[in-house]
Structures are given as structure tokens and as C-alpha cells.
Design a protein around this nucleic acid. Structure first.
Length: 517
RNA sequence: GGCCCGUUCGUCUAGUGGAAGGAUAUCGGACUUUCGAUCCGAGUGCGCGGGUUCGAUUCCCGCACGGGCUGCCA
């Protein structure tokens, strides 16, 4: 039997990072077993514009390179893949359940149900449906229907049953059906509810493995019963732990964003956004935050980094292996090695994976990734000349492992600006050293007379100069750096000089000296 | 309230009835050219209380904490 897994997102307008992890596990399992991965859109409760709310979700999959075999845009043999368009299937299944006495039209108004519930639980009791509508005769039901009396369809829970599940991750779990109330499976307007639609669809789409977050574990009891009532063999279920907020065991939620801003670990990511988004013209952070997959794409993460981090959130290969490519993970993924406890999302770890995979990229790939940030920040033209492009490439190469995410290149904007911002604190500190100002002054003619403005020549010339003055070869370096870049951090100082260029370097050094007088 | 799931360094995790391993973060050192780069080193942990046992992080029970379901949400 071919393995078939699915991910069923609601078109919410963004892709949740935790949902992405669930989707990844489904994708990995399908790929590992040579099966199919299906994307099904859960729009049963949506009034909004499904198409536009879906785009960011599809884009997240595309960006990460997680392709789907059936679903939106690609379709497939079990179309349509939008639950909103599958009503005929739910209707048919519902009719069968009614005909077989396994579901009933419940004419009790919501207020009545609520009153029943209150009465039952008032003294700490257990609520179960009173099932008044089950006592109606066929004639009475016809009369109610003819009179247009509103109803919902409820699944008749077989209360004498024990439900057993062999979960692929959690092992044996069981429930007593006698404690479960009859779930509504279809609304008054004929639209299906989640537990029902998912059962009908999973069966019709021949899903073999339902891999989903553990918040669905309790739903599984109803779903198993529904599968049985409809004559299906239930799929294999695998409930993976939820993704928690950094440093906590609380489920990661978009509703707690303000709280996350104060979270010391999460703060790293918010800080990146605060720093980058205004510079690339996204006001109000572009409506993006670190709970959304789009955020990572926009600030310049690469898929390999995020993918590695997500895969390790609740799954491990062994006691050693941390750095894994998607191909490697695919070959080695197994549900047996998914952990049971919740996995806290860890931005620090994500950044370290990201750094590793960024370093695997070629200079050209990194240049291509950094270029858009420089362009959006107005530091490089939209149509760069060959010279401008080469400059970007040279800067990116010199920056080397200092670039962890593509937008980091903006930290070193002094290579592209006409007027640099000088870190006054560092400037003052560096020039406070006795004799430095004089030394730099005397160094100017040496630099001016240097015809070959390259790292090698610069290093040789400056070292020779320092030695001629009887000071160590590195004495001037910090002063040169702060004068020409304005910043205490960056590539090697001779790289900086070469990249800034002779004319601009001298100009900036003279400006610094002028400021010291 | 009822039912179900979970709990190993700050964090992600490995693992075992007999001295708890890796990664990341942190701290310290090195690189006599910086650094948020790189290299090296160090410290840090089995939620609590019972029980079984010669011995429990590992098995059992209870508790606490976290999560979920108990919805005409998914």
C-alpha cells in the first residue's frame, strides 16, 4: 500500500511555524516511503476570501521546497481539494449514517442543549446528550422538516463502546465512549464540522497515515468511531507534540505575540525584524512576526536552516547528529523517533543551524541572497552594473561567516554608503590611545603613495610603516578601521580598506583626523 | 469538573534498573587586526512525594505543572 499523508491548513492568511513543522513531518514520512503528500484546504468555516488567504501558505511550502502531489494548483485524482467544494461527499456520508440510524437530526435548539449541560454539570456531573430527538417518530421528524424547524446532525455515540487506538507515537490510548457526548457533524446549513469532514476526506483521499499535532488526540476517539460507522478502516494515527514558545512549555500561539516580545530568547528574532524591516521599506514590520513562516523568508533565512531546525523540533536521529540536509532527513525520518514531550521553539538553535547552512552556500548564492537587501535599502541600484555587482560579491566574500542571514549584509552598509555613521563611543576610545592620531597622520602620505590598493600591498605597507615608527604592526589597525568604516566590527581591516577604495578611504581618514583637532 | 497526553542541562535532545552523552546558549582562554567571525576549554540537568528493589532518572502509585478534548472552531 502506498503511503499517503496530508496536511490540511485553514486559509488563515499566514503559515504558522508550528503548522509548518507538522506539515514537514507529513511530507518527510511520505517521501521517505515513496508515497504521496496531499495538501487539502480546510475552509469549512471560512467566509473570507479563501484564494488570497491561501497564497501565503502555499508560498511557505514553495519557499521551503516542500512540494505536494495533490492539492491546490496541481489537483489530482481525489479533487476537489477544497473542503468547501466537497459538500456532496459529506452529504452522501451523512445520508448513509442517518439511513443506518448512526446519526440523528437533533431539533433541540442550542439554548436547550446549553441548559441540559448546565443542569448536568451543576453538581459536578457528567453531561451526555438527552437525545430527545431520537424519540421522535418518523412522522414527527417529517413534520418538523416540513415545518422548517432547524436541526443539526449529531453522530450517535455507541455508549457501550471502548475505543482503542495504537498511536504510532504515543502507543496504546483508550477511551470510554460512555463518557462522550454526541458530536454535531453537520450544521443547520448543511456544512460539515471538522471531525466529520476530516474522516470523510481522509478516507476518500485514501490517507494511510494521519500525522498531526497532539491537540487532535482527543478528537481521534470520535474519528475512529465515525470511520467505523462509515465502514472504513481507520488510517494509522501519529500524534506529534505541539511546538511551545521559547523557554516554556506553553503552546506557541499567535495571540501571545506581545508577551513574546519580552521573552529573552524570542527577542532575538523581534530585534532582527525591528532592525531590518524599516530598512527594506516594510513599515509596521509588514505585518510579519516570528510565528509566521513568511517572516523567516523576508528577513533572509534560507530554507535549509529553518528546515533543519523544524525537523529537530521533536525528532532526532541519534545522540549525535544535529546538522542535516532535507535529503538526509528524508532518508532517515521515522515516527518511532519522534519525542512525546512538547518541543520549545528555540531561536538560538535556529540561528546556529542557519549559520551552518548559510556557510555551505557558494559566494554566488550568498551574493544573490544579499543583493535584494542592499537594493531594497537603496544602497545598490535595482539594475546594478557589472562593477557594482562585483563589489557586492567582493563584500559578501570578505564578510564570509559573518553573514548568518542574508539581511546581515546591511550591518556592513559602510561599504556602500558615501557618508558613514561613526560609532562615537568606539571612535573616542580608539583615539584616546596616546600617539595614535599622530601615527595616523603620518600614515596618510604612505597610503596616498601606494599605487597597488590591494589587501596584500596594504598590509605590507602599513606593517612596514608601523615598524619604521618602532611600533607593532597592528598598532594602527583599529584607528584605520574606525576611520574608514565607522564601525568596530567587520572583515579584516585590509579587506575593509580595499573594499572601501583608495579615494574614499583617504577621504574618510582625513575627515577623522579633522574631527580630532 | 470529567476524560486523554506529556515532564532529562536555560533550550533542543540521547540514553539506561548500577557513576546521564551530544548540540546550542552562557562563561573563560586563544587568534599579538577588530568582531556579534573562528578555534580551544569549563560549568550546568533526570518536576515533587511515596512504593517495588541491594540499588530508580529508568518500573508502579499519587501530586504538581504544562497541553488538549469536553463547541453548530479547527
Amino acid at each position: 500500500m502506498t503511503v499517503r499523508t496530508r496536511f490540511a491548513p485553514s486559509p488563515t492568511g499566514y503559515m504558522h511555524i508550528g503548522g509548518m513543522r507538522t506539515a514537514l513531518f507529513n511530507w518527510l514520512f511520505a517521501r521517505k516511503h515513496g508515497g504521496q503528500f496531499i495538501l487539502r484546504i480546510d475552509d469549512t468555516d471560512q467566509e473570507r476570501n479563501v484564494a488570497s488567504a491561501l497564497q501565503p501558505i502555499l508560498q511557505a511550502f514553495r519557499w521551503l521546497g516542500l512540494n505536494w502531489d495533490e492539492g491546490p494548483d496541481v489537483n489530482g485524482p481525489h479533487a476537489p481539494y477544497f473542503q468547501g467544494h466537497r459538500n456532496h461527499l459529506y452529504r452522501a456520508a451523512a445520508d448513509r449514517l442517518i439511513a443506518e440510524g448512526k446519526a440523528y437530526r437533533c431539533f433541540d435548539p442550542p439554548e436547550q442543549i446549553q441548559a441540559d449541560r448546565d443542569a448536568a454539570t451543576k453538581d459536578g456531573g457528567q453531561y451526555l446528550n438527552i437525545r430527545r430527538s431520537c424519540d421522535l417518530t418518523p412522522t414527527q421528524i417529517e413534520e418538523n422538516l416540513a415545518a422548517g424547524k432547524p436541526w443539526v446532525l449529531r453522530f450517535l455515540i455507541p455508549r457501550d463502546r471502548k475505543i482503542e487506538l495504537e498511536d504510532a507515537i504515543r502507543g496504546h490510548v483508550e477511551w470510554n465512549a460512555g463518557l462522550m457526548s454526541d458530536p454535531v457533524i453537520m450544521r443547520a446549513n448543511g456544512s460539515p464540522l471538522y471531525n466529520f469532514a476530516t474522516v470523510v476526506d481522509d478516507s476518500q483521499m485514501q490517507i494511510t497515515h494521519v500525522i498531526r499535532a497532539e491537540e487532535h488526540l482527543s478528537n481521534t476517539a470520535v474519528q475512529i468511531l465515525l470511520h467505523e460507522a462509515l465502514g472504513h478502516v481507520p488510517p494509522i494515527f501519529a500524534h506529534i507534540p505541539y511546538v511551545a514558545a521559547p523557554g516554556s512549555k506553553e503552546k506557541l500561539s499567535k495571540r501571545k505575540l506581545e508577551q513574546y516580545r519580552k521573552n529573552p530568547q524570542f527577542k532575538i528574532l523581534f530585534d532582527i525584524a525591528d532592525k531590518i524591516f524599516p530598512r527594506i521599506g516594510l513599515s509596521n514590520q509588514g505585518g510579519l512576526d516570528p510565528v509566521m513562516v513568511e517572516y523567516y523568508e523576508k528577513v533572509g533565512f534560507i530554507p535549509a536552516g529553518l528546515l533543519n531546525a523544524l525537523a529537530r523540533l521533536g525528532w532526532s536521529l541519534d545522540d549525535q547528529t544535529e546538522l542535516m540536509s532535507l535529503d538526509f532527513i528524508t532518508q532517515n525520518f521515522s515516527l518511532e523517533r519522534v519525542v512525546k514531550g512538547p518541543a520549545g521553539f528555540d531561536p538560538e538553535k535556529l540561528l546556529s543551524y542557519q549559520a551552518h547552512w548559510m556557510n555551505q552556500l557558494s559566494a554566488d548564492e550568498r551574493t544573490a541572497g544579499c543583493l535584494p537587501y542592499l537594493q531594497q535599502a537603496g544602497l545598490v541600484p535595482q539594475q546594478p552594473s557589472a562593477v557594482e555587482h562585483a563589489k557586492v560579491r567582493a563584500v559578501v566574500a570578505a564578510l564570509n561567516e559573518r553573514i548568518k542571514i542574508f539581511s546581515d549584509v546591511l550591518t556592513y552598509d559602510y561599504f556602500f554608503k558615501d557618508v558613514i555613521e561613526v560609532s562615537e563611543k568606539d571612535f573616542t576610545k580608539i583615539f584616546a590611545k596616546a600617539g595614535i592620531r599622530e601615527l595616523l597622520t603620518e600614515c596618510v602620505p604612505v597610503l596616498t603613495n601606494l599605487s597597488d590598493w590591494t589587501v596584500v600591498s596594504l598590509e605590507a605597507a602599513i606593517k612596514a610603516f608601523c615598524e619604521s615608527k618602532g611600533v607593532g604592526g597592528g598598532t594602527l589597525n583599529q584607528a584605520l578601521r574606525i576611520s574608514t568604516t565607522g564601525s568596530p566590527i567587520g572583515p579584516g581591516v585590509f579587506d575593509c580598506l580595499e573594499l572601501v577604495g583608495k579615494e574614499k578611504s583617504l577621504e574618510r581618514i582625513n575627515a577623522a583626523l579633522a574631527k580630532l583637532k
